[in-house]
């Protein structure tokens, strides 16, 4: 679509022009097409950008995986369902603490046996 051609055609118009209905229809259809075309162009650009970033992200992830995989063998995970270290509970009962730890594990995607909780403290009610 050549926007300059539209602009050239529009040089005959000014704000006080009284348009005939066929002319108005032409302007309307062209206007809607221009908006569609322009936003579709931006959509194509976004898709292209997303693809580039996806490829770049994949190669970066692969690099990170290689460096992370090495120390993996050094530590030994605890038995399933256990967490490491000593946990201080301040004004929190054990079932509540268990629920909190399970939620943290679920949301972070890290198994419970690889997490180390130090303390769970109830904040003052405001």
């Amino acid at each position: 679509m050549n926007i300059n051609a539209i602009a050239l055609a529009a040089t005959n118009y000014n704000p006080s022009t009284v348009l005939e209905i066929p002319e108005a229809l032409k302007v309307s259809v062209t206007g809607l097409c221009v908006v569609m075309f322009e936003l579709a162009l931006i959509a194509c650009f976004i898709l292209l950008m997303a693809k580039i970033f996806k490829i770049a992200g994949k190669s970066k992830k692969a690099e990170v995986k290689e460096t992370v995989e090495a120390p993996k063998t050094a530590g030994t995970p605890l038995a399933d369902g256990n967490s490491a270290g000593k946990l201080d509970l301040v004004d929190v009962d054990e079932p509540t603490a268990a629920v909190i730890m399970a939620i943290v594990s679920d949301q972070s995607g890290i198994p419970l046996n690889r997490l180390n909780f130090k303390s769970i403290k109830k904040l003052e009610d405001k």
Binding site: A40, I42, A43, I46
Partner: peptide
Amino acid sequence: PISLLLGAAAQLGIYVAF
């Protein structure tokens, strides 16, 4: 990005009112 097409289609009223 398909949202952009919806944003464009929702300009229909401009041309109808015109």
